[in-house]
Design a protein around this nucleic acid. Sequence first.
DNA 1: GGGTACATGTAATCAGTTACATGATTTA
DNA 2: TAAATCATGTAACTGATTACATGTACCC
Lengths: 189, 189
Amino acid sequence: MSSPAAGRGPSPEGSAEPLSLSPSSYLVLGLIARHGPMTPYALKIRSGESVGPFWSFPHAQLYSEPDRLARGGLLSEEREPGGRRRRTFHLRPAGRRVLDEWLGDPGTEPAQLRDPALLKLSFADLGDEEGVRRLAERQGEAHRARLADYRRRAEELTDTPEDTARRRVLTIAVCIEEAHLAFWRSLLD
Amino acid sequence: MSSPAAGRGPSPEGSAEPLSLSPSSYLVLGLIARHGPMTPYALKIRSGESVGPFWSFPHAQLYSEPDRLARGGLLSEEREPGGRRRRTFHLRPAGRRVLDEWLGDPGTEPAQLRDPALLKLSFADLGDEEGVRRLAERQGEAHRARLADYRRRAEELTDTPEDTARRRVLTIAVCIEEAHLAFWRSLLD
DNA sequence: GGGTACATGTAATCAGTTACATGATTTA
DNA sequence: TAAATCATGTAACTGATTACATGTACCC
């Protein structure tokens, strides 16, 4: 790595106010805190590993979000002078503080169950039974495939703290997939 | 897998322009198909009844979305000349066709499980066990409350076709809440 | 007759997504 | 060396959310 251009930019420490923090923000902060300074591309790869299986972030967002966080003083950016002009983002103390605060706060936004299949099912009275049957079949297949995927992923985990966290999340993902699967199957009686 | 009408091309039917259809679109089309011509406010009320318990649409969207659909030729708009200048939206044949197509197509976009609590849990290795415990407690409470709410709603349903559809959806919502609840409890061993 | 909840709408903003574009490495 | 794939970045768009703003009816 080239010599980090220490303290690049004006960085007026106290002028980072209006910055709303979304799940994407915490994903970025968390990944950098865990793995050290990263490029957006590395974020993309890592995000696939952790929450990836059931919550996908488009790659463009992993370029723009670090930008935002840097503007807000939570990250610092270091840029390769030549070649690909890669940008590497570092966690700043303010970023670590925000992350710790989030981790320590037991409150979260409620999970909304936004499943297009359920929306469709809720309008089943406008269609015919045959439509519901076909929907249930397809959903059964889809959830079965996901379930298999999650189980396979869970098997590959070690018992580092990191993988332990991942295992927990995969555990509930599996439980929820099982619930979906059982439901759609029950519609096919 | 079923790609919605996002496909480009010289649309042989040649009616309206490219209009991307989101879940909000189908919610609006479906509610108007079921209950007849409606104002945005009525849409807001009805949306709370059907998918409302687990998928909330902000009211502003129920004003802008019918607009979009009307511009696309799927709805027609009728406006009160005086007073509140209420807008009432009617389903046009093209709208009914699009709705039927959607209902008949067993494919849907996959449901993503975007639960901020799980994101936080997936970063548990950056915090302490105490944080996880408190998170699990809170999530337990939250899911217990939701579960009770869903069950109460389910009890009030009749057996019209409409309510039958709603009952199915509430059934799976209950199952999923149970899965969440069991999971967070299991973390509190 | 004044407060407050219901009803209706627009405007501004933002997050998330798609699309476009290109540089660098590997591989056939 | 051509093609394919990985890696990197920006631009443009738009659906969704927040905030603003106002009208109407009801009830103490």
